[in-house]
Design a protein around this nucleic acid. Structure first.
Length: 225
DNA sequence: CCAGACGTTGTT
DNA sequence: GTCTGG
DNA sequence: CCAGACGTTGTT
DNA sequence: GTCTGG
């Protein structure tokens, strides 16, 4: 999971989080994915009162090239063993604020689904961030932590992002707490907190930004109006 | 010791 | 099958 | 994440 | 930076 997401522009994201934007406002993306010029928005444990624009995927601080490997997700089960992530645990936690994410069910036919919060709130993903000054320009970047799915997501896919409540986000971002206390929030979210809808295959094309895969107005995210 | 990788997903 | 580009 | 390409030489 | 493989 967590390769394709729907997120609002930075101004709206900051407003809904109740924080100020830190940077030149950036657009959102109803069909976003990690690539060399993609940015997503959230909060870093260092100064979480301000919205950060994170390059996605993660570029480790020690890297002097753009990563040739996949670094948009970190497996919660073994990220503590990975050279690209372990130095960030307990030191550089972040949350990413999105509207929802897409998963493809691989049954007889590949079927796309959309997951969002049942109450229409921002979806908060647990992540790790880093800061690199060895490339052309300094880059703040992040990765999204994944885990085994809850029952609802598990019906269509074997992984999901770590989705946390606002209260747990405060714990994940609290630099005063020891890592093992902060890491306790990396749990599967309860099924009832999520909304799951099947969507059209027009989502598949990454450059389709129309949102025409949503079935009707009642399923269309607010960000598209 | 130095050189070279550093990752996830899904699919088999 | 696997890598690259979006 | 999915879609789409998957090659080399030489010449511009 | 830090780990693995040689």
């Amino acid at each position: 999971m967590c390769g394709r997401i729907n997120f609002s522009d930075s101004a709206e994201t900051a407003k809904r989080l109740g924080v100020k934007d830190s940077d030149t406002p950036r657009e959102g993306d109803v069909n976003g994915f990690a690539c060399q010029d993609s940015y997503i928005f959230g909060l870093a444990d260092r100064a979480p009162d301000t919205l950060r624009h994170f390059h996605w995927p993660l570029i480790p601080s020690w890297s002097n090239t753009y990563p040739a490997y996949q670094s948009h997700n970190a497996r919660s089960e073994d990220m503590a063993d990975k050279p690209a992530y372990k130095h960030l645990l307990g030191k550089r936690h972040c949350i990413i604020a999105i509207n929802g994410f897409y998963e493809w069910e691989r049954s007889s036919e590949k079927t796309p689904w959309y997951f969002s919060m049942a109450d229409g709130s921002l979806m908060l993903l647990a992540g790790l961030w880093d800061y690199n000054t060895k490339l052309d320009a300094p880059v703040l970047s992040c990765t999204v932590i994944t885990r085994e799915p809850n029952q609802m997501v598990g019906e269509v896919h074997n992984r999901m992002p770590v989705i946390i409540t606002r209260a747990d986000a405060d714990i994940w971002l609290n630099t005063q707490l020891p890592y093992h206390e902060r890491a306790k929030v990396l749990q599967p979210i309860e099924n009832s907190a999520l909304l799951k809808v099947e969507i059209g295959k027009s989502i598949n094309k990454a450059d389709n930004k129309s949102g025409d895969w949503f079935n009707g107005p009642d399923e269309k995210p607010l960000s598209l109006f």
